[in-house]
Design a protein around this nucleic acid. Structure first.
Lengths: 232, 232
DNA sequence: TGACATAATATTGAATTCATAATTCACTTC
DNA sequence: GAAGTGAATTATGAATTCAATATTATGTCA
């Protein structure tokens, strides 16, 4: 029964990257993405209760796809679904944020290790170039650009690891602390240290020193956590 | 607007552990769990297409909660949703399984590290006791019991880490390879080695040697991967 | 005046219905 | 006889409807 499904679906190299050829995205996933974005951008505050009806009118859809989206976001940990009482944006305690950062540190540590081992020379060169950009944006005190490049570097290292599961797992958790991440106060000392850490990472990567890269990335993340902690 | 919602909701210590007192579980989550179990137990084979109508009659529910369940399982990575063409059980290639194991190894490594640092003496004693049980089940060639205890030990170490985010992240990924894990052929050599690895882990934990525990758990997982690879 | 009980309202949970896209099958044509 | 086209069928996507639970409002009694 499942056989014919198996047989007519070959996977030579890169088979299905585009399951949806043109313009037809399901409403539910569209809503999921928009809602996620709204939560991450802080449009909807933690602890806030979600009113389904209000959102349906805002999005111009029915409750059915909206509720499907809520289920997905709850599975991602962005919402908490309470039976018969609706969904609330998960409020993150300091402790929970710390938990997430510890896991992220482990994941990025793995990413560093793998990337040092398997990334192409071109990818490593790209990371080095981006790190130089990072240094520039720091020198120019261009915080938005710094944030952008910083995030891009992390993503690049993740992607270069060649482990898509790792990328996805990281992404899921990174979402959860994105708000906190933006709010992190970047003191001059911390900013400078972060840049130096990035340069050390790029150097270790260029040398393909998996062990060191792993440790540096791990520590880099944990440092980021402490910089968040000291806020307020 | 979100303020009054925030203010009237205090979180002293353990506030809401039971959002649902008795007997009233939402249909959608019920279906999600049952479907997940079916997939993990191999009742539904990878690559198999899911027929919504058939499942609704089987479960005796309407399509609405079923579809919500499908969305959740897709978010967990157990299903793949193709627009207008339904859901198929994700087929896992060797490469994907390897990816998951690498991430699991990193997560369990972190768990070992944290547990060695923060677990109570009672928890560590419990792990040691369970490890002795594991040795017994090995000596008696009691595979089902071995599997059960093995899984329990891993869960216990995860739980003792005190990092719930880590537990949940691990759980999510562990689900994905549970099928492969059961199918792993436990050769006599591998079985013996696994028991010894577990004993080494218990020993390192008892000594509260975070560094060693972390490394051992990580390697233990990677060994498990190789034992799966050599099958067939 | 304040606390409790009860009714009214609003919101969520789930089933049904409608719309649209994909699959299947028969028929035509080469 | 095989391939391709078009209609019929089936399955999925989404809106609507119905039911059950929770929240709010109102009124009564102490």
């Amino acid at each position: 029964m499942g056989d014919e499904v198996s047989s007519n679906q070959q996977e030579p190299e890169m088979s299905q990257l585009k399951p949806d050829p043109i313009g037809r995205t399901a409403l539910a996933v569209e809503i999921t993405n928009r809602l996620r974005q709204m939560i991450l951008e802080g449009v909807m505050q933690p602890g806030e209760k979600i009113n389904e009806k209000a959102l349906t009118t805002q999005f111009g859809v029915s409750r059915t796809p909206l509720r499907e989206a809520l289920k997905v976001l709850a599975a991602e940990g962005l919402l908490e679904l309470i039976p018969h009482r609706g969904a609330v944006i998960t409020r993150q305690s300091e402790a929970e944020i710390a938990e997430v950062f510890h896991v992220l540190a482990a994941l990025e540590g793995l990413a560093g290790e793998l990337t040092a081992q398997v990334a192409s020379d071109a990818e490593l060169a790209q990371i080095t170039a981006m790190t130089e950009e990072l240094r520039q944006s720091y020198a120019q005190t261009d915080r938005p650009r710094y944030f952008r490049i910083n995030q891009a570097i992390h993503q690049e290292i993740l992607a270069a690891s060649g482990n898509d599961t790792l990328v996805k797992s990281h992404e899921l958790l990174a979402h959860r602390v994105q708000r906190a991440r933006y709010q992190a106060n970047l003191t001059p000392q911390r900013w400078r240290a972060a840049v130096e850490e990035h340069e050390a990472i790029a150097k270790a990567l260029a040398a393909r020193d998996a062990e060191t890269t792993s440790r540096l990335m791990r520590d880099h993340l944990l440092q980021k956590l402490t910089s968040i902690r000291v806020k307020s």
